[in-house]
Nucleic acid binder design. Structure first.
Lengths: 330, 330
DNA sequence: GTCAGGTGTCGAAGCGCTTCGAAATCATTT
DNA sequence: AAATGATTTCGAAGCGCTTCGACACCTGAC
């Protein structure tokens, strides 16, 4: 069963090879009758263009690389949703997806780029000081990052708008009449690393709360139960009138609820809790939350990458956060 | 920055293009001095072979497709471990991985195979009557399946040996002196679908138990708490002397423990529980368990596929189950 | 000194596709 | 009726690589 080539199609349809190519790519006008004849032959013979040959001749592989941080400890549901969305969206643009793990590091990126195996790259979970970022810059390979590195100048990045997410949570609590609220954030070290999203959430939260004349504080939060409990206790000791809590730390969310219970503060009767975390965690605990829009992230990332492949300029975008109201706020 | 071609390397090293090719592929003997000169040039120029050209000329893409069931409700940790392992192992064989979702279905497989985009396929989560299996058969594309379809004749499959896993659980309980044991399996519909692994576990469990002269029963098990609780209750009503339980249903594991607690049966004091489930679930609940060896599965699957690509015959393999003893059995 | 048989290297022919310039065809205009 | 311009199709030249057959050289045997 020899594979069907474009020459077979051409012969079968009684036209030149180039004509078949033009019918398939639509890059030149072909008369309706010829076009139909060619398409019929394609169908009859079951022709599929050879990817290698096409890539070689056109200098376009029609493949994008998806670089995932496939290490333990990732938020898997988010990652999965994202990957699924990327694959599906890429297919819509007639592209396939090459899966890479972050642990091949910069070399892997250099390799696939230099071998023209992919036309562009999608990097998930970009860190603030990511070693791959400078490489990406001078490699000149079209790419889209999920997350913002320290210096995003000249790069295309997609992320949730954490500033607005923080603000949204503060606003939600304010509208419910809470006057004294707090943000329990990421562990200390995360802020020290200068991780963008933690910092931005905090800024948005404080700005919005202050703007609305609320009394607001933001404190970091470790992830073991004991540390969370003591942080919560300290918070209420210092601010007895606290009635609203925003938790931006998925690992700590459960412990915060436990700690509140231990302190005898009922949710949502005594204190309202808003989480910024993946949907499944919030769903399970019935928490009002701002979710990570993984699917939208994937879709937008691919869209932007495709635009870049077409030579269009593509700026970074921040996705608007959406608050889902559940049972933990009133 | 034009890309470096093999001709550039040849010129730089003062040899013919074919010589460079042979140095790189090792398919013909090249003198040590020439080889070194070529390798130096490769390094100096930063040469990476063009994947498309290579694929076209050699009819080998050096890419394998990984078809994952990226739908909700999958066991994500297992899937992730598996994917990671596949990518890492493939890289060891100098191959890359094209990520596909099962929802492109048979057409997707036909497409990537016909376009010579991949050399072989890895399908995860194969169902008993999988529409892709007949296609795979007559497509003749090298492939390895994770899981066993109804008729595995002529196919290469890799899976945990569920029969032995069931037997292992029964044996473990028998050795601990339990005389009356039960298997809580998958939901009814799963058996009705004829899903292989559920059935095989049950068979192995019953065979081993019976062989050792134990009194054993196997019942299906739904996945909501209420249904699990009533199933557990019915089980103990019918078999008051029951002291050993095997749970082969990851979604129900937690509920089973809850139901036992509700019935006032302590684990492991009154009843020993063995689970067949992913490691993380068992780990969290401190359950003695047989885990799904996702990483090994990925590694073996790639190994088999590579063997097939080299034209070697590759039979199916069943991975030996391993029991991890934790705190739920005595 | 010649010849057989290795080694090591080269040149050229593709692999299947895209794309460019040119040819062929047809419809309009003068 | 010839010339012009559009429209449609063709042919051929690559894209960068692998691989086959051939050539050149060297060794050792006779």
């Amino acid at each position: 069963m020899r594979t069907v080539t474009i020459a077979d199609v051409a012969r079968h349809a009684g036209v030149a090879v180039s004509t078949v190519s033009y019918v398939l790519s639509g890059k030149r006008a072909i008369s309706a009758t010829t076009r139909q004849r060619v398409l019929d032959s394609v169908r009859v013979l079951g022709y599929h263009p050879n990817a290698g040959a096409r890539a070689l001749a056109s200098k376009r592989a029609n493949v994008i690389a998806l670089v995932l941080p496939l290490r333990a400890g990732m938020n898997l549901p988010v990652l999965m949703q994202f990957a699924t969305s990327v694959v599906a969206t890429a297919r819509q643009y007639d592209h396939d997806v090459l899966l890479m793990t972050a642990d091949e590091g910069p070399d892997g990126i250099r390799r696939v780029a230099a071998s023209a195996m992919v036309d562009g790259l999608l990097l998930m979970d970009v860190e603030v000081r990511d070693t791959r970022v400078p490489l990406l810059r001078d490699l000149g390979e079209p790419s889209v990052l999920i997350g913002f590195p320290a210096d995003a100048e000249g790069l295309t990045c997609v992320d949730l708008d954490f500033h607005q997410a923080g603000a949204l949570c503060a606003a939600h609590l304010a509208e419910r009449g809470h006057r004294e609220i707090a943000l329990l954030g990421a562990p200390e070290v995360v802020y020290e690393r200068g991780t963008g999203f933690a910092e931005r959430t905090r800024a948005g939260f404080l700005a919005e709360a202050t703007g609305r004349g609320l009394h607001a504080v933001a404190v970091p939060c470790e992830e073991t139960y004991d540390e969370v409990a003591s942080a919560v206790k300290l918070l209420f000791d210092a601010h007895p009138g606290l009635t609203g809590l925003v938790v931006h730390n998925e690992a700590a969310v459960g412990h915060v609820l436990g700690a509140l219970r231990a302190l005898g503060r009922a949710v949502p009767e005594d204190v309202s809790v808003v989480a910024i975390c993946p949907d499944d965690i919030a769903e399970r605990a019935r928490l009002t939350s701002v979710l990570i829009p993984a699917e939208e992230l994937g879709r937008e990332a691919v869209r932007l990458l495709m635009a870049k492949l077409d030579g269009l300029p593509a700026g970074s975008i921040l996705l608007e956060p959406r608050l889902t109201i559940r049972e933990s706020t009133r």
